[in-house]
Amino acid sequence: MENTKHSEQDLQAIALKVREHIVRMSTAGGCFTGASLSAVDMIVYLYGEFLNLTPSNLKDPDRDYLFLSKGHDVPALYGTLVELGFMEKERLENHLSLNDHIYWHPNTHIPGVEFHSGSLGHLPSVAIGVALDLKISGSNNKVICIMGDGELNEGTCWEAVLVANAYQLDNLIFVIDRNHFQANMRTEDLIPLEPLAQKFESFGAAVKRINGHSYTELHEAFSTYPFQQGKLNVVIADTVRGKGLPSIQERADRWFCNFSANEVEQLLLELHGEHTTSLTSETLIVR
C-alpha cells in the first residue's frame, strides 16, 4: 500500500487488538460477536487510514463522517476507537453497565459516534442528509455509511440509493458488510440478494466489490473515491462472519454470543492461533 498513514502490518496489528476487545465483550451479557468480527478490518481501515477523523477533530466542521447503520457491530467500533485513542480502554469494562453508555448499539456519548443506531435501515437516510448539506455548502467532507447485507431487506435502504443518486451525492459511500448472514440465517436462504452489484448499478450507483479483509483491496477501492462523478459510491465488501475464530466462523448459531469467562480465554488463545476450542451450544444466546 503506497501513500498510506499506516502500513498493512500496522493495520493488522490494530485489527487483532480490536478482535481481542470483541471477544472480551462477548461475556457477562454478551454481544453480537460474529457480525462484529466480520466488520473489523473495514472499520480499522476507514478510521485508521481513509477518513479525516481523529480524537482531536471530532467537532471540526472539516472532519469526515462515519455512520454505523448495522449498529449491532458496535463492539468492532468500540475496539477501534480505543486502539486509535478516541476513548480509554478501561471504559470497555463498563460494557452493559448502568454506569456508562457502552452497550449493544452506538451511543453519541461515545467519542467518535456520530449518531445512534440499532433500527436497521435508518442511517442511510441520515447519511444522505449530512452528505446533501455538505454538497450544498460546497464542503469536501467524506460521508460513509456502513450497512449489513441483511439490512438491505429494508426498503428504506433502496429508497436511499435512489435519493442519493437523484441528488448526485458522490461525496457519500455506502459500504456493505457482505458476510452472507442475516441474524441466524444465510441471506440467500431467506431473501436472496445476488446479483448484488448489478442491483446497485441498476439504481444508478458506482460499485466496487472487494475482499473486505484485504487492506490492499480496501486501499485500492477507497483511493479512487469518488468512483464516478455525480454517482453514489457503493463498496460491497465480502467478509466472513466470525473472522479470526475458526470455531465460530460462518456459523448461523454464532450471531449473538454470551460466553463464560473460561471460554473467552480459550477464544483469545484461538485468536492468536495457539489453541482450537469447540464451544457448546449451552453457552450461546441467539436473539
Rank of each mutant, 00 (worst) to 15 (best):
M1I: 14
E2I: 09
H6S: 09
H6N: 08
E8H: 08
Q9T: 13
Q9D: 11
L11E: 04
I14K: 02
L16V: 05
K17C: 06
H21F: 12
V23C: 03
M25A: 15
T27A: 05
A28N: 09
A28G: 06
G29R: 06
G30P: 01
S36I: 09
S36E: 09
S38R: 06
S38Y: 04
D41P: 14
I43C: 10
V44M: 10
V44C: 09
L46A: 12
Y47V: 00
L51R: 07
L51C: 12
L53F: 10
P55D: 15
P61L: 08
Y65P: 07
L66Q: 03
D73G: 08
G79H: 10
G79T: 06
G79Q: 12
E83Y: 01
M87S: 08
K89L: 07
E90N: 04
L96W: 05
H101N: 11
H101S: 14
H101Y: 13
H101W: 11
W104K: 07
N107M: 03
I110G: 04
P111V: 06
G112E: 08
G112N: 03
S117Y: 02
L120P: 07
G121L: 07
G121S: 10
H122C: 08
L123S: 12
S125I: 13
S125V: 12
S125L: 15
S125N: 15
A131T: 00
L134Y: 14
L134G: 13
K135A: 03
I136W: 02
N140I: 06
N141L: 07
K142L: 09
I144Q: 01
C145T: 03
C145I: 00
M147E: 04
D149F: 05
E154K: 13
G155Y: 06
W158H: 13
L162N: 08
V163Q: 09
A164L: 08
N165K: 02
Y167E: 00
Y167C: 02
Q168G: 05
L169R: 00
N171H: 09
L172H: 05
I173R: 00
I173T: 15
I173H: 02
F174R: 00
V175T: 06
Q182I: 08
A183C: 09
M185H: 11
T187I: 15
E188D: 10
L190A: 15
Q198P: 02
K199T: 04
F200C: 00
E201F: 03
S202R: 15
H213T: 07
Y215A: 07
E220P: 01
F222D: 01
F227W: 08
Q228K: 14
Q229C: 13
K231Q: 14
V234I: 11
A237F: 00
G242R: 00
G242W: 01
G244N: 13
R251D: 08
R254M: 14
F256K: 11
S260V: 07
E263H: 11
V264A: 10
E265C: 11
L268Q: 02
E270C: 14
L271R: 04
T276Y: 12
T277P: 07
S278A: 13
L279F: 04
L279I: 14
T280W: 00
V286L: 14
